[in-house]
């Protein structure tokens, strides 16, 4: 079976900015693919290309086998887009927003109203159905936006930074919703800057940096690619920590970090066999370990290893510049 979302060699330039530089990824039916990357990595541009809003300069992408450029009309019948900024109409009620989308998708008046009612109930918005959405909280707007995406029973849903700016409670609600989507065979592509979010939701993660995919795989595969693991050991008697540290240094060749107040000794280890060796040595010396673990690196560490800079690195603010440079490009074409 071929993939529902396929993209290869996507390129897009806005003036000086190379937003996409050959990005490629794919997603199987009923899975969640996360495009993970910092601001300006090209995630939003990728979503805009896949959702037919933007023509790529190079490369190709298909949704359910339909080309996003040449078969855009068909693609639009299969997808739904939830943008970075909740794209609901502020001056309509929640119910009117959904009825409008339903009518635009060809539902009859009664059908559209039924669908709106059903979705409002599903997203816990029934009480707010008759209120203008400008009175909604950020989380409610985002939920309404998601509901609007589901009116047409799409095969593929694009979620561009679905939880940016939400408080933890609202974020958890959105997460629960996303998890529910794939149960019906819907394929989800979401973009996120949050490693935790990708880890929580995605079956596959494509790490995107400066317009290209620098790594992809499951969260645990990605964690394994850096090859570095962390060994953590805490002796029950914290005064024996220096002794443990010396042992760890001998086994791993690294100088461990020692926390004197707890006695926790931490060091990176490349060879997993270190763990069993350490257990043996500790036993021989009669040191009882209160805590002993070999931990895979966090996605944060993975990101740093893959891209050479941290995910929180805000020095690339290209996303904000996109719009203005695109407008300049537009002005250039009309001039």
């Amino acid at each position: 079976m071929s993939a529902v979302i396929e993209a290869a060699g996507l390129e897009k330039r806005f003036g000086e900015t190379q937003a996409l530089a050959g990005a490629g990824f794919s997603a199987e039916k009923g899975t969640v693919l996360a495009l993970l990357g910092p601001n300006g990595a090209g995630k939003t541009t990728a979503v805009r290309v896949l959702s037919t809003l933007l023509k790529p300069d190079g490369g190709a992408a298909r949704i359910c086998g339909y080309d996003v450029v040449h078969e855009a009309v068909q693609v639009r019948q299969l997808i739904a887009l939830t943008g970075q900024y909740a794209s609901v109409d502020d001056e309509l009620t929640g119910s009117e927003n959904l009825v409008m989308i339903g009518r635009l998708l060809g539902l009859g008046r009664a059908q559209a109203k039924d669908k709106a009612r059903e979705l409002l109930a599903r997203f816990g918005l029934t009480d707010a159905a008759k209120r203008a959405t400008k009175t909604y909280s950020g989380g409610m707007r985002r939920r309404l936006d998601l509901a609007a995406s589901l009116v047409g029973d799409p095969q593929v849903i694009f979620l561009d930074e679905p939880t940016t700016g939400l408080d933890p409670r609202a974020r958890n609600q959105v997460w629960d919703t996303v998890r529910g989507l794939t149960a019906n065979g819907v394929t989800v592509l979401l973009t996120t800057q949050y490693l935790e979010e990708a880890d929580e939701l995605a079956d596959h993660i494509a790490v995107i940096d400066r317009g290209r995919v620098v790594a992809s795989g499951t969260a645990s595969e990605l964690k394994a690619t850096t090859g570095k693991q962390t060994i953590e050991v805490r002796p029950a008697d914290r005064f024996r920590a220096p002794e443990v540290a010396e042992l760890v240094t001998r086994l791993t060749g690294e100088t461990p970090e020692v926390r004197t107040e707890t006695g926790l000794v931490t060091a990176t280890a490349v060879d997993p066999a270190v763990l069993s060796e350490l257990v043996q040595q500790l036993g021989q010396r009669g040191i009882v370990a209160a805590e002993l673990a070999l931990r895979l690196p966090s996605l944060d560490e993975v990101f740093l290893a893959l891209t050479g800079h941290s995910a929180d690195d805000q020095n690339v603010n290209e996303d904000e510049n996109h719009e203005s440079s695109e407008e300049l490009a537009d002005a250039g074409r009309t001039a």
Binding site: R48, T52, R76, G83, S87
Partner: peptide
């Protein structure tokens, strides 16, 4: 506000 993004992604 992104309202037109949604319209443009719809089959209309």
């Amino acid at each position: 506000k992104g309202v037109f993004d949604r319209f443009r992604s719809l089959p209309i």
